[in-house]
Each structure stands twice: as C-alpha cells, then as structure tokens.
Design a protein around this nucleic acid. Sequence first.
RNA 1: CGGGACGUAGCUCAGCUUGGUAGAGCGCGCGCUUUGGGAGCGUGAGGUCGCAGGUUCAAAUCCUGUCGUCCCGACCA
Length: 606
Amino acid sequence: MPLRMSTLFLRTLRDDPADAEVASHKLLVRAGYIRRAAPGGYTWLPLGLRVKNKVENIVREEMNAIGGQEVHFPALLPKEPYEATGRWEDYGDGIFRLQDRSGADFLLAPTHEELFTLLVKDHYSSYKDLPVYLYQIQTKYRDEARPRAGLLRVREFIMKDSYSFTIDDAGLDEAYEKHREAYVRIFARLGLEVVAVEAMAGAMGGSRSEEFLHPSAAGEDTFVESPGGYRANVEAVSTVVPEAIDYTNAAAPEVKDTPESTTIAALVDVANDLAPKQTGQWQAHETLKCVVLTAVLDGEQRQVFVVAVPGDRDVDVKRLEASIGEALGVTGEPSVEPATENDIAKHTQLVPGYIGPTAFNDGQLQQMLGTDSHTGIPFFVDPRIVPGSTWITGANEDQKHVFGLVAERDFSWDGVLEATAVQDGDPAPDGSGPLAARRGMEMGHIFQLGRKYAEALGLKVLDENGKQVVVTMGSYGIGISRAVAALAEAHHDEQGLIWPINVAPAHVHIVATGKDDAIFETAEEFATKLEAAGIEVLLDDRRKAHAGEKFSDAELIGVPIHLIVGRGLAKGTVELKDRFAATREDIAIDDALEHVTNLVHSYQNR
RNA sequence: CGGGACGUAGCUCAGCUUGGUAGAGCGCGCGCUUUGGGAGCGUGAGGUCGCAGGUUCAAAUCCUGUCGUCCCGACCA
C-alpha cells in the first residue's frame, strides 16, 4: 500500500522553527519528520520513523553479516554493575540516576558494556564458546549539559552498540577489523561520507580506537589530516617533537623591561618595540607561556602546578587530565582547572603576568619552578620545549621578562606533558607535510577495550589447558539518530531534503495535480504497479491542495524521485523529476513504469 | 557551569519603552470561486501571554525568583 498524503500524519511548516539553527534541524522539523517533545528529546513522526528504521535495518544487516547476534537490554538498570567498573562515579553528571520506591539506585544506561559483559559471564565459561559478537539497537540516555542542533546532540538517542568477546588479542584484532569493514559498508550503503580517524579512548578505557567522522562544518569534533593520508582526532594527535638544539654558543639570558605585557600579544608588541630582534620580528611562538593550573582530586585536594607552552598555543586542559595524575604521582584521576586567585595567592613568589621558570637573584640565575626549586611548585613543559630551544619568558619580576633563556642550560623541568592541542599547519606524525584541520560529526566509534571490563566484572573462561583466562573485549557504536541528522545535513538543497534512496521514506513520490478524475486514477494505477514491483510510493492524492503546494511539499519531504501526473496526461505524458540530478523530463505514459523502476534500481545499486 | 539573546494561538511573529478586558500572517473548520509553483473572497474556532511570587484599583507590559529554548565558551560516546 502506498503512503497517502491525504491521510499521512503530517503537517509541513512554511517557516523555519525559531529554535533551529542547523539545516538538518530546520528541515527535519519543517518536513514533518521529528518534533521536539522534551529538552533534548524528539518524537519520531511517521516519515522520520521510516527513515530511522531504514538506517537501523542497514546497520542490522551488516552486523548480522559479520556474525553479530542481536539482543536487547533494558535501558533502566541498577547501579551495581556500573559501580563495579567505577563508571557510576566516573560518569559524574553525565547520566540520569533515579531511585525506585524502596530507595534503590538506578540509572538510565548511557551505554551497556557492563551488561553485555555480565550476560556473557552468565552463559559462557569456555574458550570453545568464543569468539562471540553481540549487539543491540537501543535508546541511550545522557544528561547532556547542552543538547543542540536537533537530533545531533540530544539526551535520549538511538545507538547500535556491539561488543566482541574473544579469547585473546588476536581475536580482538580480527573482531575489530571485521567491525571496521562493516562500518565502511554501512556508511557507504547509507550514502553518508565518513572518514576513519584515530581517536582517544576517553571514558571507555582501552587501547586502540577509531572514530568515523562525517566531515561537516556543523560537526562538533575537529580532526586533522596529512597529505599522506594520516587522519586523527585533534585529541589523539601526538606532538611531533623537534630535534634538540646545540646551545654551546648561545648568548646569555638577559632581563629586559617589558611594561604592561601580561599577555602574549602585548609581550610580542612590547618586545618588538623595546628590544627589537636583529633580524625580523619577535613572534608569539618564540615566547614561553607559563600557565598556572590546579589539579583537583576528589573535588577537594588542590595541587597547584605550572605548565610551559609556546606562546602561540593554548593549554588543552583535557589533554593534561589524561596524564597529570601520573605526572604528579597521585592516585586517582584529578581534574584540571585554571588556578584561582586563591591558589596563586598561596605562592607569593609568583608574579602573575610575569611568571617564568627562572629569576635573577643578585645577578645569579635561579630556578623558580619545579619540585626541586625553592617554590616547590611542580613544573612541566610541552614536548616542543626541547633542550637548546630559546625563549622569551617571565622573569618573575613585575614588568620584566627574560630574553634568550635556553631550555636545559638555564632551566629544568619535572616532566614533559602533552599540554596543547594540535593546530592547523603543524607537522604530521607521518612526516608527509602539514596537518590540515577539519570539522566532523562523530557517527561511529570502535574501541579495543581489552580486559578492563572483563576484569572488573570477573568475566573469565577456561582455556584449552583448563586455566582461567580473562576475556578480551571490543566495543563498537553507531549513532542511529545522529546518522539521520547527518544524512539530512549532507543531502539537501534550498527546496528541501534529498534522501539517498536507501534511507528515503519512500522511493518515488507520485504527485497528482489537476482536478480530472482521470489524473487521480492514473496516479493510483502507477502507485499500485510500482508497489507491486517492490518500489515504495508516497502518493499525493489530495484533491484540494494546489499544485504549487504539492510541489513544495514534495521538495521539502525529499523523496528523491518524483513522478508528476497532471496536465501532460492529455497528450499522454507524465513528468519524471530526479532530485539528485536536478533534472525533469516528460516521458510517455507507457514508458513511465519502466523508466521509474530503472531509475530507482540504478540509485539502489550505486 | 560562565557570558549573551529569547519565551504571547499549531507555526512565524507584533504588542511591553509610557500598565487599562489579546493581535497579525500562515495553518485549521464551513461556504463559494480557483486548480502546474504554498490562490481569492466571506465566515468561524483556537491563547490561564512559560511557571510562581510581588508591586498596583488594574500586569503580556514593572520587580524578584524559577523553568525552558537558542547562540558562544567549558564539558561530553
């Protein structure tokens, strides 16, 4: 049965919704696919649900094809499994927690590693049962601080998550590679361009991981790519460390007056003004910015430390958090925040705006930062601060900076930390040239989890020698609802959406325009015959709507092929419109069925 | 969580400055006309002005709080 516009639960909107900014959000709401129901929550209307189901089915087919078996967990879960892995705490404000009538703690699952692990533990206890790949397509909940852009970032969303359970790393590698290949096929079938980039494992733990990003200006992730094909999320790029420099003949450091230069920009100006370089101009990357930060453990213990980075770069707090605990020798995972005035006030030797690793004391250069210095403040440097590199930096004296301070010769540090984000133009790790930064939407993420979850939850099997072995796991996600948004974002024009045929709510939109019964009867006939040929039809059989209204709706809704039955009928033609190719042609009625069928099939087989 | 903007009919918005019984366009119902690019005329239905306090004879309008939305930042598969 064709979908009929006369009875379809649909109201297209003439204006963009006031709360929408990005194209996918505007169009999905205007064309009647989704409707906001809650902060960060959307209702799927009939058209939207059809698209969502098609996306799910493609994912499902490809997961089944690599041997995945579908299961389905509750979204409402007790806290215990998540306590066992530490994520009840780790997720912080990121999850929805609630209590039942007796006061027991529950959560709405943000992802299901724990439950899959326990499920396998319940059933399996031998290496002979492995490998096994399980997956589900399920609603996930995250208490996002800021839902945005329609379906792109919401608090309730649909995700395919799969998990591999294998006896060893070789099995994991195979599972990972199979998923990787399945993901490439899935996005190709969806008609969504993605690039695989190296990623940080983040809260999931584990080792190797890659993200599948859809390149788009509306995306929230930034990745870099090199001319040689290296691609990585900015979070995951490791710095290319410059060669150490021979400083045998380097000039001695010198303190100079640099009034009113508490920012790098001001310092560069003042330096060029009062202490010009022999050749050229001083640049921000020749200054050393010493940033005072505080590591906070359990929300209470505050440890002030200083990180030095080249002046043209900003400190990346998230990167620091990945390594600061170890660097400071504390257990636990401290968060990092800018030092407060209070924090700084406890270290009176620090002169805000003029902080540097050293100071001159009676003409003698003296180390001011570092656990061995007399301030005792832990001091770390970015990998770009190599031995022999020369810097302009604070002299720990008001209105003064020191010029020509040489790393290693003039100051030392407690450790080297990745402290800044990679920038457009930085050298690529593969040596093929400068990195270029692009934006992307995260469509999927694959992780080699290793044994973290299996260990925490006691998932072990007996190996062939009868010994207990911890199972090795991988986890693999695809954002289904986000994929719908990305598809809308990637496939539209001024008139409306243009769905790839594999996910379109219907294959052909038949528009009957005019008032003669013959027109509507012919349109019905086409609909019946096309459906019989396995082609899904959306039929505009509204008698009262005007032609212009029907055309506008058809373009907005975005079924990619339109068959218009109207004024041409008198001379035996109908009009075939291809939204992908942006073409329209009159064809003889007798040829229409074959034409349309061929066109649909040609797009399906792409 | 910080900064900014905003919340009035299904949708897009006006009215608020200067307090005085709720408005427009689109959409929706009915009638007639019209029928290949969101048509016309007529006629109707539809809103506790986000919510809660306060000021006032009187609050959509002024004040306070709160909830929500959008943007930027922080954070986040």
